[in-house]
């Protein structure tokens, strides 16, 4: 079980309203990702759910039980911190066994569970080391191990991969997704990396200044962002946003078109521009096209073999049914 309902949950630090009252429903077994720019309150929201921070208003209901005033240990949730927060003076084995020891489980039972967790996480040969003798990825796995032995009703992750290098991050991302498939436990995952959000989530919650901008599946958010903020935040590289006369032609205040929905042609097309910087990734190439007369440079994705050079003139054509239209206040039309 791991159904979590937030109703009217709010948080202020002194005068600063970090989280205005918000409602959110998290189903049992879901993988929910909180995503948003730095300082938008993702960690705060997660800590509110964990019970490490007191709410200023509203109620947190876990599995039908009002948990608003319940202590963190009693909520039945496990958290993996960004800094891993391993206990440096204990061996990996004692680290993983710590929650079991606190729960007063018999030693044999503890050992059995630790061995089982270590096997799942490929830590068996490191059990007698100290955290200081492990690599970043291994420490991360120990932190996860410490969380899973408790058999919590939900896992909370606060940017668990941000201290890892790019290659390891991709690996750990898959391991966590795999773990979710295996355990089928609710997971709430905080990140500011929208690739992590897109690849891992069943449901993404986009936060901005403490407010929920949109909740939905990754593809929902990609296909129909509810407003300009979500449109700009989800998708990489960012969606091109164009306002002014060109947008009015489409009957909108602002239009948005993703780089992958614009085609490039050397001689004919809707918009004319000059190629600026191009980024060759092998599989794709991203061109930054300037002087389009649209008010902003456009980013365009083309195939990896397309060869255009700095200063070349190109013509761009958007796919008409992939154009997103937004009104004056930034909402989708």
């Amino acid at each position: 079980m791991g159904q979590i309902t937030l109703s009217g949950v709010a948080k202020r630090f002194g005068e600063a309203q970090v989280i205005p009252p918000l409602d959110l429903e998290i189903q049992d077994g879901e993988f929910v990702v909180f995503v948003g720019p730095s300082g938008c309150g993702k960690s705060t929201l997660l800590r509110l759910i964990a019970g490490l921070e007191d709410t200023t208003g509203g109620r947190i209901i876990i599995d039908g039980r009002d948990a608003t005033g319940v202590s963190p240990a009693q909520r039945g949730l496990a958290m993996v911190f960004q800094s891993y927060a391993l206990y440096p003076h204990m061996s990996v084995r004692s680290n993983i066994a710590f929650p079991l020891r606190m729960a007063g489980l018999p030693k044999a039972e503890q050992d059995r569970k630790v061995e089982a967790a270590a096997k799942v996480l490929n830590l068996t040969s490191y059990l007698d080391r100290r955290p200081g003798q492990l690599s970043g990825g291994q420490r991360q796995r120990v932190a996860i191990g410490r969380a899973i032995v408790r058999e919590p009703s939900a896992f909370l992750f606060d940017e668990p991969l941000s201290n890892l290098d790019a290659a390891l991050r991709v690996g750990m991302r898959m391991e966590i997704s795999e773990l979710h498939e295996k355990l089928r436990t609710t997971m709430i995952y905080v990140t500011h990396d929208q690739v992590e959000a897109m690849t891992m989530a069943d449901k993404i919650v986009v936060l901005n200044a403490g407010r929920i901008e949109q909740v939905g599946s990754p593809l929902d958010l990609y296909r129909s962002p509810r407003n300009i903020f979500v449109a700009g935040f989800i998708g990489s590289p960012k969606m091109n946003l164009i306002s002014g006369p060109e947008a009015q032609r489409f009957g909108a205040h602002t239009i948005g078109i993703r780089p992958e929905h614009i085609s490039v042609h050397p001689t004919m097309g809707e918009w004319r521009g000059i190629v600026g910087v191009s980024e060759h990734l092998g599989s794709d190439t991203f061109f930054h096209v300037q002087e389009t007369g649209l008010g902003a440079a456009l980013t365009v994705r083309a195939g990896g073999e397309v060869s255009l050079h700095h200063g070349d003139t190109v013509f761009l054509t958007p796919e008409p049914d992939k154009i997103h239209r937004f009104d004056q206040s930034g909402l989708r039309l």
């Binding site: 490490l52 963190p72 958290m79 710590f98 410490r146």
Partner: peptide, 20 residues
């Protein structure tokens, strides 16, 4: 964060003092 982790792991204040 270490203290918070211990708190979530179910260690009451006295045990947090003793073990962490």
């Amino acid at each position: 964060e270490q203290l918070e982790a211990a708190e979530m792991d179910g260690a009451p204040p006295v045990k947090r003092f003793w073990f962490i």
